[in-house]
Amino acid sequence: MPPHLKHAIPKAFWIAGLAVVFLLLYAPILSAVLFSFSADRFPSLNMSGFSTKWYAQVLTDRAMLDALGNSLTVAGITALIATELGFSAAYADYRFRFFGQRAVLALALLPPTVPLVILGLAMLAFFSRIGIAGSLAAVVAAHVVIAAPFAMAVCRLRLAQLDAALEIAAQNLGARPLSALFRIVLPHSLPAILAAFLITFAVSFDEYVIAWFTGGLNQTIPVAVLTTLQGQVDPTIHVIGTMSFSVTLTLVLIALAVVLSQSGGAMSKEKTS
């Protein structure tokens, strides 16, 4: 590195600082992973041995398996709807110029900034009124509200890289609007749509507060975990935590890989032109 590009603070400090940040972020999670394999009833660092018995216990626990089923169903349906809505909103913002566009955009991106307790309570009140409170449908509806903005953000990033003239150019060559959308815009957006699906799936899969308010007796995994915790401290919590974390991490990592490989590819393409 040329001397004038050297930073005033030595590289070692940067690395040390980064290490502290990551330690604080991931140490609790890693401890949960560690204790999930402990043979002891209570978590302590001088473990008597490793065991997978808590895993066996979780995988035979009827309530937990039901919760897992609920979580997968809710997250799957939420991801489908949120991705569709998010892409549509991003496309509308990309393709058209209309009155109040910025206001609509701000409103569409707003839900994740509302405190979850308030959102959950409001959802519960509303769902009771229309008579779907306490059902999985209610959880899905609420999760779509908080997940769709993430899908929209991801799709917007991708669409911003697409020359707006291309779709019109396709029409100019004889493509009807729907053909132009399917031949030009969708192939370009596919990585973002996939990433949006995975991220919204993860958002729903992890969400506790709203699921607790609106789900009633239909517990998702986070709700089931918290309910269990209130009664006892059980090592199975570590198992569930580890499993949930793995699922979420995997989804987000795949999404990142898809998005980064595509934008990187697009950038290198532009360089050669």
Binding site: I168, Q171, N172, L173, G174, A175
Partner: peptide
């Protein structure tokens, strides 16, 4: 547009 047969070089 798509029925015009007037292609454009952009």
């Amino acid at each position: 547009v798509w029925e015009r047969e007037t292609p454009l070089v952009w």
